[in-house]
Design a protein around this nucleic acid. Sequence first.
DNA 1: GCCAGTAGGCTACTACGAGTAGGTTACTTC
DNA 2: GAAGTAACCTACTCGTAGTAGCCTACTGGC
Lengths: 206, 206
Amino acid sequence: MEIQQAPAQPSGRKRLPRAERERQILEVAEQVFAAGGYQDTSMDEIAQRVGLSKPMLYEYFGSKEGLLLACLERAKRELLDATTRAAARAEGPEQLLHDCLQAFFRFGEEHAQAWALLRNEAAIPNSSVHTELESIRAQQTEVTMGLLQVSRPDLDPVQLEAFAESIIGAAERLALWREGRPDITAEDATRHLFALLLPSLQPPAG
Amino acid sequence: MEIQQAPAQPSGRKRLPRAERERQILEVAEQVFAAGGYQDTSMDEIAQRVGLSKPMLYEYFGSKEGLLLACLERAKRELLDATTRAAARAEGPEQLLHDCLQAFFRFGEEHAQAWALLRNEAAIPNSSVHTELESIRAQQTEVTMGLLQVSRPDLDPVQLEAFAESIIGAAERLALWREGRPDITAEDATRHLFALLLPSLQPPAG
DNA sequence: GCCAGTAGGCTACTACGAGTAGGTTACTTC
DNA sequence: GAAGTAACCTACTCGTAGTAGCCTACTGGC
């Protein structure tokens, strides 16, 4: 017991309506989560940066995870906006694909924090796990580059690397996709991805 | 103070040499991390499942993250083994790609726990964040399927979905790859991926 | 102008899990 | 059979997510 109450607002702090405060909190949270990682960020830290006390965060977002979810929700909306805007402008199917890809990559560039959250990287405990995962990725890329070089000696090294990264990314995603669909066998997945890649495996001159 | 010591080994528990105990711990840890997620798994829980006390885990692996890293290390080795074995057996570059893809997908199937760790999914706090990330993925897939259908009305829905997932995976990976290489612009990345995908965009009959 | 009612805010707690200090006991080796 | 060490333990500290319970600035009605 013996609760000793200090003045509620130390000095120049202002009361704000809920909607505005929520936006403010999201802004800070996205930044801090993306920079320091979900795990290594404390609610106290976010509260302090907003210039508010922790219980307010819980009042508005329920939990630490709830706050992360709210950040993700916002990023998701922004990503969809970016892609559909690009799609609306394009003419012809090839242009369409090209512009959407570009919109995607630009989103990553311009909304670095939102992007960091969307890849679940923010959830990773910290940098040495990050490093290890990168090394696994590098391992797979290297093997794949070796395979590619046989079919496509015409490609320059950077293109080769980009192709290899793309293939690994596609394979990982397909493997993930398969988890929700038990009807798709490993052979099916292989066939699908192989079909997509085969035309690009043919050497350009024949 | 006042440390009251109970018998060190309650009953039938056996002392094991370090190497063996480490293997045993890794086995349990991989399983528990993969099932419950890194965040939601406590060291006490792992210790209990092994039938050991927490300080032993710290003695052998240094920290919770160290234990995760050791699990990742092992999974990484296994994945490399699987792929290189497949590559060694194959004849011709197309067969090579095909068999490696297949080895990859089979690895995911046969080593579900190791695979769950390798995608960093284990790091994700818990299921509702997982759900949200899945929903973002679904959103992107849907948009992409729409684009694809224009160029390739010949594909059946499952193939279409597989293509879309592959493209999204490739794009994500490339975006990640770009983060370590500031020289590659968003336009470069777009061009690389577009070049890889373009041949498969052409309708089959012309 | 004054008095509810409420929305925005707070301090000071509890609970739980990562990591540590410092001790005990079963094997090995001479 | 004693010495040394490797395997193992209990019982802590400390940081952080989440909660209880209280305060106060603004609003609208009189």
